[in-house]
């Protein structure tokens, strides 16, 4: 999945509330979206301003075929992947 498709899927999921946060037995406080310190609308406004130069992608280190997307923009760091029907956030932090 390229940048445009990833951005589109991300914004759609944020608008619709179709997303989850990755957990490893605990709540990651660094993930500001999970703890409610930033809203989905705020993340949308960050992502909407990004272009391909702010995006990188790599395969998940444990699951082949799952692309992990990283958007870095203006000090923000948004890391996610897609397992349909949800977008999964690894982290949203500044």
């Amino acid at each position: 999945m390229g940048f445009k498709a990833a951005k589109s899927a991300l914004i759609k999921a944020l608008k619709n509330g179709d997303f989850q946060h990755e957990a490893r037995g605990s709540i990651t406080v660094k993930n500001l979206l999970a703890t409610g310190q930033v809203t989905p609308q705020e993340v949308i406004s960050i992502v909407a301003r990004c272009d391909g130069s702010h995006h990188s992608c790599s395969e998940h280190h444990q699951v082949k075929g799952v692309d992990v997307h990283l958007i870095k923009y203006s000090g923000w760091y948004v890391k996610f992947y897609v397992i349909a029907p949800d977008v999964w956030f690894i982290s949203v932090h500044q």
Partner: peptide, 18 residues
Amino acid sequence: DQVVGIPAQSTPAIKAAR
């Protein structure tokens, strides 16, 4: 049996607990 995911709908409860 490990917690692996937290849905968006749980955020208000998490925010209050935090």
